[in-house]
C-alpha cells in the first residue's frame, strides 16, 4: 500500500513516475497531509470570511438588524469619505518605510550576529528583546519620552548643536518616527535570517574565496541568492502585516497629528468599534484584502526570477 502511494511522490524525475503509475492511486497523499488545514479552514475561517463579506454590502452596526445597501459602502469609500484617501496614502507611505527598513536592518544585524563572537547568545537575546516587549504598556510611555520636545533624542541632538525637532508632533515626521519603532522590533525577521544564514553550506564560501571573490561579491553572489526563499517569505509577511498595522498608531499617535499617521488599520478599527459602522468597515477591509492580494500575487509572479530553491523551483 505504502509503496503504491509513493509512486506519486515527486522528485526531480518524479513527474515521469507519476505518469506511469499515477493512475493506480487517484488521491495524492498530499491531500492527506493538508487535511488538518482544510478542516480548520472550513470550520474556523470560512464562516467569518463569508460573513464579513456579506456585511460589506449591508449597514450592519453590530447591534441593530442589518439591511442590504448594495454597493453603497464601496461607493462611499471612494467618493464620500473625507479621510479614506488620506489614510490609504499614509498606509502606502508606511509600507514603503517599514518593510524595506525592517528587512535591511534585520539582515544586517543577522549577518553580524552570525559571526563567531564571544557572548553571542547574550547579544542575540538582547536584540530579540524589543520583539518580546511587543505592545507592552511601557512602550508608549517610553516612546513619548524619547521623542518629545525635551526628550532624549533632542537632548542628544542638542549636544551636536542641532535645534530640537518635534518628532511625533510634526505631521511631516510623525509617520517616519513611527516607522522607527516598528523597525526597532525586527527580532522575528532577524531570527529567520539567522537560521537561513546557518543553512548556507560553508564550502560555497570556501570555493568563492579560492576564486578570489571579495566580500561584497560573495554577499551578492552567494549569501543573497541562498537566502532568497527567506527574504521572499519575510517580504511577503512584512508587507501583509504593514498594510494591516494597527498597534503602532493606536499606541503612540492615535492617528495624528493632522491624520498623518491615520493608517488603514486605525481607520477600520474606528469605523467598526467607535462609529459602529461594521458594514462599512467590512467593505474597507475587503478593499484592503484586494490590495494586499495584488501585491502578494505580484511578488509570487516575480519570484522565479529572483529566488532560488533546492527543489528546483518545482512547486
Amino acid at each position: 500500500m505504502a509503496t503504491l502511494k509513493e509512486e506519486r511522490y515527486i522528485g526531480k524525475n518524479g513527474t515521469r513516475l507519476e505518469t506511469v503509475r499515477g493512475r493506480i492511486s487517484k488521491l495524492s497523499p498530499g491531500y492527506l497531509y493538508i487535511l488538518p488545514w482544510v478542516i480548520g479552514f472550513l470550520l474556523f475561517q470560512l464562516y467569518p470570511f463569508v460573513t464579513s463579506f456579506i456585511y460589506s454590502f449591508t449597514d450592519f452596526s453590530i447591534l441593530k438588524p442589518m439591511s442590504f445597501v448594495g454597493l453603497d459602502n464601496y461607493k462611499k469609500m471612494f467618493t464620500a469619505d473625507r479621510l479614506y484617501w488620506t489614510s490609504l496614502k499614509a498606509t502606502f507611505k508606511y509600507v514603503l518605510i517599514a518593510v524595506p527598513g525592517r528587512l535591511i536592518f534585520a539582515l544586517f544585524i543577522a549577518m553580524i550576529l552570525n559571526m563567531k563572537l564571544k557572548c553571542i547568545n547574550f547579544f542575540r537575546t538582547v536584540y530579540y528583546l524589543p520583539s518580546i516587549l511587543g505592545g507592552s504598556v511601557a512602550i508608549s510611555i517610553l516612546w513619548r519620552f524619547l521623542f518629545s520636545r525635551n526628550g532624549t533624542v533632542n537632548v542628544l541632538l542638542k549636544a551636536l548643536g542641532i535645534p530640537p525637532v518635534d518628532w511625533l508632533g510634526n505631521p511631516n515626521l510623525a509617520l517616519g518616527t513611527m516607522g522607527l519603532l516598528v523597525i526597532w522590533q525586527f527580532g522575528s525577521s532577524m531570527v529567520l535570517f539567522l537560521a537561513g544564514l546557518r543553512n548556507i553550506p560553508t564550502e560555497l564560501y570556501e570555493a568563492a574565496r579560492v576564486d578570489g571573490a571579495g566580500s561584497v561579491k560573495v554577499f551578492f553572489k552567494i549569501t543573497l541568492p541562498m537566502l532568497s526563499p527567506i527574504i521572499f517569505f519575510n517580504l511577503i509577511m512584512q508587507t501583509i502585516n504593514a498594510f494591516k498595522e494597527f498597534n503602532a498608531p493606536y499606541l503612540i499617535t492615535q492617528g495624528g497629528p493632522l491624520n498623518s499617521t491615520y493608517l488603514y488599520g486605525m481607520m477600520l478599527y474606528e469605523n467598526a468599534f467607535a462609529f459602529l459602522k461594521m458594514g462599512y468597515a467590512s467593505a474597507q477591509s475587503w478593499v484592503l484584502f484586494a490590495i494586499i492580494m495584488l501585491f502578494t500575487a505580484l511578488a509570487f509572479k516575480s519570484s522565479p526570477y529572483w529566488t532560488y530553491y533546492e527543489d528546483g523551483g518545482d512547486f
Partner: peptide, 24 residues
C-alpha cells in the same frame, strides 16, 4: 507533493492572513 488545485489552495492559506481581524 503534487496534487490538483495545489496552487489555489495555497493561495487560500495565504489569503487567510490578509483580511484585517477587526471585521472578523
Amino acid at each position: 507533493f503534487k496534487f490538483r488545485y495545489k496552487k489555489p489552495l495555497f493561495a487560500l492559506v495565504l489569503a487567510s492572513l490578509m483580511l484585517p481581524t477587526e471585521v472578523v
